[in-house]
């Protein structure tokens, strides 16, 4: 389970996390007023979009429809999921689609929007762990099934793009899984041979 995080409060001292006032930020060396740690800083002023919302009163009498959430604002689009008429305040452009805030929230929760997804299964580590477990318990004939399971996870890891970094782990997982299967097969084969000779 993830550790609880404190709420992010903007630029702070990188050492003691004391929140820095915006007027204290400057390019160059800064000394934290709380812990006196000196650090080098580069300050940026990201451009902000000033929301100019078309009001219903400004849009003219013909064809003007109000936003479902803001009755005073004129609708400029409809949500691609629920069809709700939305103003430019509500309109969320995600992956070449226009969504209302509630649909965006739901799609993000369902994991339907790739750009809004922030939790992934680490199939590379799963492959590695199951292959090692299979190796440890191969004497109980678990090498073959767990080897197959870990190869399945390794294939999933190779297919999912976010796990590309763990290519070495995946390769090691596949190798150990093949050893599992080989070892399990050898044990099984020898057991069957013994059973055949001693009925």
């Amino acid at each position: 389970m993830a550790r609880p995080r404190s709420a992010y409060a903007g630029p702070a001292c990188p050492h003691c996390r004391h929140v820095l006032a915006s007027d204290a930020l400057q390019d160059g060396d800064i000394r934290c007023p709380a812990c006196l740690t000196e650090f080098e800083a580069r300050v940026f002023h990201p451009p902000q979009r000033s929301a100019r919302v078309l009001q219903l009163a400004q849009s003219g009498p013909e064809g003007a429809t109000s936003c479902a959430n803001h009755p005073r604002n004129a609708a400029v689009a409809s949500c691609e999921r629920c069809g709700l008429l939305i103003c430019s305040l509500c309109q969320l452009d995600v992956e070449s689609g226009k969504y209302c805030p509630s649909c965006f929230e739901r799609l993000a929760q369902e994991g339907a929007l790739a750009t809004a997804k922030n939790r992934f299964r680490d199939y590379g580590s799963l492959a590695m762990v199951w292959s090692i477990v299979g190796l440890l318990f191969s004497f109980l004939f678990l090498g073959i099934p767990l080897g197959i399971v870990s190869i399945y996870y390794a294939i999933r890891a190779l297919r999912s793009r976010q796990n590309r970094s763990s290519l070495i782990v995946v390769a090691a997982g596949i190798f150990i899984a093949l050893v599992d299967i080989g070892l399990g097969g050898t044990i099984l084969f020898s057991m069957l041979n013994v059973a055949r000779h001693f009925p």
Partner: peptide, 27 residues
């Protein structure tokens, strides 16, 4: 930033057009 939490990856992103401050220090 991918934080590995058992078998789950939790991803956080900082977009370049959102950056307010970049710091460099030693600890």
């Amino acid at each position: 930033v991918d934080e590995l939490d058992h078998f789950e990856i939790i991803r956080r992103r900082v977009f370049f057009d959102d950056v307010l401050l970049v710091t460099y220090h030693k600890e």
